[in-house]
Each structure stands twice: as C-alpha cells, then as structure tokens.
Amino acid sequence: MTHALALPVPSAIGNIDAYIQVANRYPMLSEAEEIRLAERFHNDGDVDAARELVLSHLRLVISIARGYLGYGLPHADLIQEGNIGLMKAVKRFDPTRGVRLVSFAMHWIKAEIHEYILKNWRLVKVATTKAQRKLFFNLRGQKATYEGIDTLSGTQAGEVAARLGVKREEVIEMETRLSGRDLALEGSPDDGDEAFAPIDYLADSRYEPTRVLEDKAQARLHDEGLHEALGALDPRSRRIVEARWLADGDASTLHELAAEFDVSAERIRQIEVKALQKMRGLLTAA
C-alpha cells in the first residue's frame, strides 16, 4: 500500500481539477491504520501522523464541498474551508470511542463550510439562528421535491415549514431572499451620455450639518450604553459577545469559543442568546 506521505501534497492554488486529481490518489486508511495514526498523534505529538490522517480524507472534503456549489462561491474556497474543518476534526478525534474519522469529520467540515457561506453570501447576513441556518441550507432541496415550479405556493410553503420545523412566513421570506438578484447602481458605458442609472437618483445626506451632529450624538450614546451593558455581563458572557459581535476582524465561531471554554457549541449559543437578551433590556431601558 502507498502511504499518503509518499505522494505530493496537493495545492489549492492553480487548477482545481488538478488538485482534485492529486487528492483522490491518496489511499483510504483501514480502521487499524487510522487508530494507529491517531494514537501516534495524540500520544506522541507526531505531526506526520496527523498529516497522513488529513491527506487520506481530502476526498471527503471535496465530495462535501461539491454539494454547496449552488451558492455561487468558488469550489476551491469551499474546499479550503472544508479542509480547515477536517484539520480541526483530526485534532479532536478520539480513536478509543469506536467511531471512524470519516463520520466524526463530516460535522466539522460542514460547520466550517456553513460559516464561510453565511459570512460571504450577501442575502443571508441575518441568518444567524439555528432555525434560519437550517432553513437556508435545506430550502433548495425541499423545493426540488415540487417538480417544475419556480416559486412555492402558500400551501407548499406551509408543507416545507412543517417538515423543517419553522414558520410558513420564514419559508416565504427566505425564498424571496434566495431568488433576489443584484441591480447595478451605475450604468453601462454603452448607455449613452443622457442615460440615468439608479445611482443618479440617490441623494447623499451624509455631510448635511444637522445629520452629522445627530449621528455623532447617537454614536456617543450608543457607545456609552454598550459599554455599560457589557459591564453588566459576567466575564465569560462578555468574552463571547465581544468575540461574536464586536471583533475587529472575523467573528469567532461557536465551535472556536466552545473549544476555548471547553463546553459544547450549543452551550455557547445559549450563553450568547441570554447575554444579548440582557444587554437588549439594559439598552432599551436606557
């Protein structure tokens, strides 16, 4: 059997077909080999063992990522995010539990791809709850059960809502977002000098003096109220809110915070919801 370490490491830079071809050459591991490598990594810190576990499961990431091509994001980017999830799975994989890595890794791979899609897909920036995410990632498949239709009827939306455990109105709203299209604000050079694009009808009131003063006052009140609301939280809740909502760069995921506090991702979500409710009450009262 050819070991993964004897093969070249595929690069995501360049031709995606070439990457897939190389990744598919890595042999699948037997259960005994998988356990041996996992034990070498966790017991001895053998990075080469972890590397071989990752390389032998690249085809799994490719297969899962292919299922998310309908969201208009590059296949290579989806694979890259999935690979991050795979590496997290290898780090947390416990061979003594009797579960194969392929089954354990699927959750982590999908979680990373979901986070990437939600951060980059313009129509679902508000899809932050568990129910909204479930609806977003399952609505396309549910619509496919009704052959030959572009838009769900009220009855069909109700049936989908019942199957997914959400409200009928939420199905209709999400379908509207998914079917939305971008509108160019600026016209094409071929439109002519006298043509008007949508941007020509938009007034810019940002620098109107009264508006500037009002915005500054509102920002000051918001910052003061936010500081007081954060101060009312316990240290763990405050850390979660700041990492999820107030980070300068990319927001932390539930799984990253779960690893930091050694609890489940669902527990982090519960703490986040409770903290935001408390802050909302304080800000409303103010």
Rank of each mutant, 00 (worst) to 15 (best):
L5A: 15
A6N: 09
V9F: 01
A12C: 06
I16V: 14
Y19E: 07
V22Y: 04
M28T: 15
E31D: 08
I35T: 11
R36G: 05
L37T: 11
R40D: 00
H42N: 03
D46I: 00
V47P: 00
S56K: 03
H57Q: 13
H57Y: 12
L58R: 13
V61L: 11
I64A: 04
Y68W: 08
H75S: 15
L78E: 06
N83K: 08
G85R: 05
F93V: 03
R100K: 12
V102T: 15
S103A: 15
A105H: 09
H107W: 09
I109D: 09
E112A: 15
Y116Q: 05
V126C: 03
T128Q: 13
T129A: 07
T145P: 00
S153V: 08
A162R: 12
E170Y: 02
V171H: 03
I172T: 08
M174A: 14
E175G: 14
G180E: 11
G180A: 15
R181T: 09
D182H: 13
A195D: 08
F196M: 05
A197W: 01
D200Y: 10
L202V: 14
D204V: 10
R206W: 00
Y207T: 02
P209T: 04
H227S: 15
E228N: 13
G231Q: 07
L233G: 02
D234A: 12
R236N: 04
R239N: 04
V241P: 02
E242K: 12
W245H: 04
A247C: 00
D248S: 03
G249E: 13
D250M: 13
D250R: 13
E266V: 15
K274N: 11
K278W: 00
M279I: 08
A286S: 13
